[in-house]
Amino acid sequence: MIEDLLVIIGMIMLGIGAVADLIAAIGLNRFKNFYLRLHAATIGTIWGAFVPLIGASLIAAGSPCLGVYRWFVAGGGLAIAFLVLILAPAGSHALARATHRSGLVRVEPCVVDHLNEDMCVKEG
């Protein structure tokens, strides 16, 4: 009973992850600017990688036909989910900071930019 519940919740999480992944990939192609594309990359890493990893761990924990080694899959999935939750925002933040400091990409829809006034492109 509890195993069926774990498998059903895990499959729902895998479906959410697939849809979020597709949305993030479309957004990464449709946005105009590097700073806007960070939004889509965040959706792709948290909703597209963290959620299906938790779902895969639940499926592995609820399937006795995988043998004793299913706890290996469940624990490994939880470890990777924790690592992605910590590492992906840190990496994106380091990349955005380096891009803004080196002046590679200008801030396109901009109201005010106190870090560097030359990078700000006002509308109109």
Binding site: A24, F34, A41, A49, I80
Partner: peptide, 26 residues
Amino acid sequence: PTISDQVLAIDAMSYDLAAFLVILSI
């Protein structure tokens, strides 16, 4: 267009690829 866009795309793709590898191992 820039190096940052490419690295951001590789980054997001690799984290999703890690999730995909776990799903395939199941």
